[in-house]
Simulated scan of single mutants.
Amino acid sequence: MPLKTRVVAVFFILLAAAAGLVAASLTSSTRPYSVYNTGGDGASNLAGLPGVMVVADLSGLQGFNPASHVLITGRENPLTPAEAGYLKGFAEKGGVVIAYGSRGFTESLLEALGVGAGVKGAVYDPVYNAGDQGLVNASTVFCGTRVVLEEPYSVSPIGAAAAAAWSSPFSYIDVDGDGSYSPGEPIGSSVVAVRVDAGGGVIIVFPARGVFANSVLHYNKGLLDCIAAGRRVLVDQSEVFRDPAELLRHLIRGQVYSPLHVALLIGLVTLVLYYVYGRH
């Protein structure tokens, strides 16, 4: 095969590979808390709000003024000591952190804050809910707003932790984890969020799977507006972007490298190959 023909073949191979990568990046994510997930457990609606910015790595928080930002972090896995340090440091410098996610994540954050607010069990409310007893409608200390929490857990504030949200007197704690009320399980108002003052800022922990996820954001936009109080919103994606597919989506859809950039890069590489080899 002539060299010029091989250069053309390489071009089309690169073009096909790039097209495949771009096409894959344009599909919706299925990863919980991803800003590219349009499903109920995603954060695409949150990321689409005016002025919201994505944080790809918690070390990048050093580039923001904490006093003028609120950081929202939803996670599946427990924090590492370094990650907990970034969140605490952000709050201590005047920032606001709102955290929610799996039981393992919220417990690890509370432990890192030294408050030891023990998690008792899942809270359900057959009366005050958003159409399902697992979507608990709770009162908060923030501007008199209410919040709809998806699969919240009850916590016991200890030390510096202060109660920040409560379920209704009709709610119960599902101690045996069967998803329904069993005789003997506690009935009554439960604490479903705590706040911990840290230096000049605050960390608010909702032990719940969803607070600003797509499925409940429309209920909780007023709560976000109250807490943010004019601050710009940052969405933590540092855990999500450990997944190579999610990072690729961000590189292309997040305008770090647009499809046009990819096409131009391929064209440039092919042009160089042609002039170096194809003309001889």
Rank of each mutant, 00 (worst) to 15 (best):
V141T: 15
N220E: 06
V127R: 12
V22R: 06
P66I: 11
A164H: 10
P207R: 06
F142R: 08
G118C: 01
S29M: 02
Y172F: 15
G118V: 13
G42D: 03
A245W: 12
Y181K: 08
P207S: 10
N129L: 03
V211E: 03
N214Q: 05
L49Y: 01
T73R: 14
V192N: 08
G121I: 11
K88G: 00
A162N: 13
Y100H: 13
L46H: 03
L21A: 15
A117G: 11
V8S: 06
S25C: 06
S258P: 07
S189K: 01
G95Q: 04
D125K: 00
D197H: 07
I203G: 05
A263R: 05
S68H: 08
E151K: 12
L260H: 03
A138E: 01
V205M: 07
G222I: 05
N45C: 08
S238I: 07
V70Y: 04
R232M: 11
A43E: 03
A91T: 06
G94N: 12
R209L: 13
G118H: 13
L251G: 05
R31W: 10
F142S: 08
V194T: 04
G210N: 10
L234P: 04
A138I: 02
S190L: 01
E185G: 09
G101W: 00
L61W: 00
L264C: 08
I266D: 07
P186I: 01
D132H: 12
V8T: 10
D236L: 12
N45A: 14
L234Y: 09
S102G: 00
N220M: 04
V141H: 04
V269Y: 10
N45T: 06
V141K: 10
F241V: 13
F206M: 03
Q133M: 14
P207I: 10
L271Y: 11
F11H: 11
Y275L: 15
V196P: 07
E246C: 09
L109A: 00
T145H: 11
S29K: 05
L46Y: 09
R242F: 02
D176C: 01
L223H: 06
V272G: 03
F12A: 10
L273G: 02
G118R: 14
D125G: 02
V155Y: 03
L223M: 09
A228S: 15
L58Y: 00
V211F: 08
A9M: 13
G42F: 03
S258V: 01
A112F: 00
L15H: 02
C226K: 07
A163D: 11
Y153W: 14
G48F: 00
R75M: 12
A164Y: 05
N214H: 09
P81H: 09
A162P: 01
Y219D: 11
D197T: 09
L49V: 07
D243V: 10
S167R: 04
Y275C: 10
V155M: 02
P259E: 06
P81R: 07
V202S: 11
D236T: 13
N129I: 06
S190V: 01
V147H: 00
Y275W: 14
S44M: 14
E107W: 04
A163Q: 14
V202T: 15
L113Y: 04
H250D: 14
A122I: 14
L217E: 10
A23W: 12
Q133A: 10
V22P: 12
P81T: 11
G39L: 13
V123L: 09
S28Q: 12
G104H: 07
P157G: 06
T140C: 10
D243K: 09
N137H: 13
E151V: 13
Y277K: 12
